[in-house]
């Protein structure tokens, strides 16, 4: 009884914060299905009188939103795939193989975690200009193909990876590539998925990179496209909210599917630092 009462006030507070998180999304949605003229009323209306999906159609016809999504998807997908591969290899090597300067190189890699992206942005721009990659998606993909955090994560993983498995594989005449592909890869699927999802989210949300590197509107990613859409004078609130809803749907779907991994990885990142 006492426990039940205690949990009542706890639940109340926690629900209030839940509402604080969800209300903006709800408000975004109701605005997006409202009549552009009717939202300008002094009375607060949480449900529109009639649902109007027009704004979604208008938003995607004014700017190529599906193209933005494809651009973002392409970049984020290649970045996560690249990070999975490079981190898997490097993490294994740093954890399990002995070679000269191994620790020094690893600490330098870790050190790059401290470098804020804005510091390298200007030199990165000159590098990309030199390679003629400005205004191409490669300028966003190539630098993202490896990540110090991914290497760190995979090294931690391989440090506690059972040695028996590796020894047994070696006795069976397994060499390094065979071991990696046939033994290590199948058993590290879930950590690699986690890493991939994190990389995907990071790449999808990146704003300053596309803002600096991409000039053509049809090359824009979702955040950049949304930003440009906001800046155009003919955008109405329902259209902007519709566009925003479209921009977050892929991530929400991904979150619902991979939520456990995402949260775990996030708390890992926090506890381990």
């Amino acid at each position: 009884m006492k426990l039940w009462k205690k949990n009542i006030w706890k639940n109340t507070i926690l629900i209030v914060f839940g509402i604080i998180i969800l209300l903006p999304f709800f408000w975004m949605f109701t605005t997006s299905v409202s009549d552009p003229l009717k939202i300008f009323s002094e009375k607060l209306r949480f449900f529109p009188e009639e649902w109007r999906w027009e704004s979604y159609r208008e938003a995607v016809s004014k700017v190529p939103f599906f193209l933005f999504m494809w651009n973002s998807f392409k970049i984020a997908f290649l970045v996560s795939l690249g990070q999975i591969i490079t981190s898997f290899f490097a993490g294994y090597a740093f954890a399990r193989l002995k070679f000269p300067m191994r620790n020094l190189i690893f600490y330098i890699v870790l050190g790059t975690l401290m470098i804020p992206g804005q510091v390298t942005l200007i030199p990165l721009y000159s590098i990309m200009a030199k390679f003629n990659l400005i205004n191409t998606h490669w300028s966003l993909i190539i630098p993202g193909l490896a990540s110090p955090f991914g290497i760190f994560l995979m090294r931690q993983y391989f440090l506690v990876f059972p040695t028996e498995l590796e020894d047994a594989a070696k006795i069976d005449g397994c060499n390094v590539p065979k071991f990696l592909i046939h033994v290590a890869l199948p058993s590290s699927k879930s950590i690699l998925a986690t890493l991939g999802v994190l990389a995907f989210i990071g790449s999808w949300g990146n704003f300053i990179g596309p803002l600096v590197f991409l000039t053509d509107l049809d090359k824009a990613t979702v955040p950049l496209g949304l930003y440009r859409f906001m800046g155009s004078y003919s955008t109405s609130w329902p259209e902007l909210m519709a566009a925003t809803a479209i921009s977050i749907i892929p991530l929400i779907v991904m979150y619902i599917i991979a939520q456990r991994y995402i949260i775990e990885a996030y708390s890992f990142a926090g506890v381990r630092k």
Partner: peptide, 15 residues
């Protein structure tokens, strides 16, 4: 509570 953490800042700002 975690939902906004994964979303692009630009989308959040738009709302």
């Amino acid at each position: 509570y975690f939902v906004p953490v994964i979303l692009p800042m630009i989308s959040i700002g738009a709302v």
